[in-house]
Design a protein around this nucleic acid. Structure first.
Lengths: 257, 257
DNA sequence: ATTCCGGCTTGACGCAGGTCAAACCGGGGC
DNA sequence: GCCCCGGTTTGACCTGCGTCAAGCCGGAAT
């Protein structure tokens, strides 16, 4: 294992959560992710109201489900620590990974429309999750306009993200897709004050392939190629971005190869 | 021109709109699309409140823009008649059609997150549009809980739709993609009490290809193939679905060819 | 230490769909 | 009528990625 595995590991022990493994008393005000998952516009009293409806259950083990497709929709979820993948299965049985969710990110909003989850979500590693009952969130939003706005924005962001992914899938080569995913994860790590250059991918090659519309083999080959090109350091799931500029160039198709 | 062009043409003259070409007094209560674009849960008085904030401008001509990427976001839009395509252009200049919007459907919600439109929208034919100022909609939603819920649902539906499209792009063949699009349009026509079997495609082959992540040539070839197979009747943009079951079989990959 | 097993890598080969090029078709302007 | 022009179709060829198959690597169980 390489040197940067240690910082990556701390992901699942945020300051708040690590004070005690069974500390379910963590609240939004002392959560270091609150600038990411919460509206900045809320004052302390409002955050406390929100806090009161949020449920924090025991950590999920790797592989456990947060919710399953077609189950009744009750809540949306925020990742506090760890990571989660969302995926859906179509009528004819094909599985599609629709998103990877890292700490501070919110998932489950696709269930609102039909009051049934349109996808399943499972932990890719041991994870702590905040459950936000949607009925109550709606009520609270009626009294806190900025909260309503924040949720409209969150959902809108999810739409934009999906549309960017759409473009990626329909227009870009395997190299570009993988490069874009790595840059996305890098940026999201950076937002959480983690290293943008060195990190551990929580998902398998298979998941990456499924998400990006590629086979495992292709994903693996791309990683190898990037490594050979001196753009990436790859040690199984440990990734280090050696040449960000080159990676960006690949991502938007302007490399001179 | 074939026999079914007439009903298709009436699309741009809804009962409400056709009373007078410049009748901007149309309102939600007498709009025959209100069960599609409006919450069923609103009572007459509430619909009137909503009605008061909705703006109906002169019809858009083919090719005119409803809004442009990166412009300030002010409103979401509902298609009353005609049809609209939404598309975005990435940093490196590639265009991606992100959706086709038919009467009763709402677009523009991807602009909420950043308060700037994340995509552009232009009329694919002469179209009437309802503009719904988002600021006011938010305020009204605070007073009409079912309206707030409806908009959460609308946005959630858009997320689900995008995710289904994602799966289509990442897992399905050209034949499957085109078949799925045709079935989608057919179903949406049916919902508006129009023929599910015979209709006029408002978009070009190029747009279809762009939307589905295919080239024009491939789209054209698929149409030809479907026609040869006796699944479809194709006369330029006039489509008739001859064998729905076969088309469904193609769409979910269970055809025995 | 040995085996097992799931995830990852690498190679050889084939095909669906992209690319390039040419021709067609239908509507609008003159 | 004629020409023009954008959209569409069709064909011939090429390639990126999927498929199939084999081998590798590392952690868990015994």
């Amino acid at each position: 294992m390489s040197a940067h595995s240690a910082p990556a590991q701390t992901e699942i022990h945020t300051p708040a959560a690590s004070r005690c493994a069974h500390d379910f008393q963590v609240n939004c005000n002392n959560c270091r992710l609150n600038t990411i998952c919460l509206p900045l516009a809320l004052d302390i009293a409002q955050v406390e109201q929100l806090d009161r409806i949020i449920q924090r259950s025991r950590p999920l083990q790797k592989g456990e489900h947060l919710y399953r497709q077609d189950e009744d929709f009750q809540s949306v979820f925020a990742v506090r620590a760890g990571s989660v993948k969302a995926y859906s299965i179509t009528d004819n049985g094909q599985e599609q990974v629709t998103g990877f969710y890292l700490p501070g990110e919110v998932l489950g909003m696709d269930g609102i429309a039909k009051n049934r989850h349109a996808s399943s979500a499972r932990a890719m590693e041991t994870s702590s999750i905040c459950e936000i009952p949607f009925e109550k969130l709606g009520e609270l939003s009626l009294r806190i306009p900025s909260l309503q706005k924040h949720f409209f924005q969150l959902m809108s962001q999810e739409i934009s993200d999906d549309q960017r992914l759409l473009t990626l899938l329909s227009k870009n080569s395997a190299d570009q897709r993988v490069a874009a995913l790595l840059l996305s994860i890098s940026a999201r790590n950076k937002r959480r004050q983690l290293s943008a250059a060195n990190f551990r991918l929580p998902m398998s090659r298979t998941d990456i392939g499924n998400y990006l519309g590629l086979t495992v083999e292709t994903v693996s080959r791309v990683f190898s190629r990037f490594q050979k090109m001196g753009v990436l350091g790859v040690d199984n799931k440990e990734i280090s971005i050696v040449d960000v500029e080159a990676l960006r160039a690949v991502a938007d198709g302007s490399e001179n190869a």
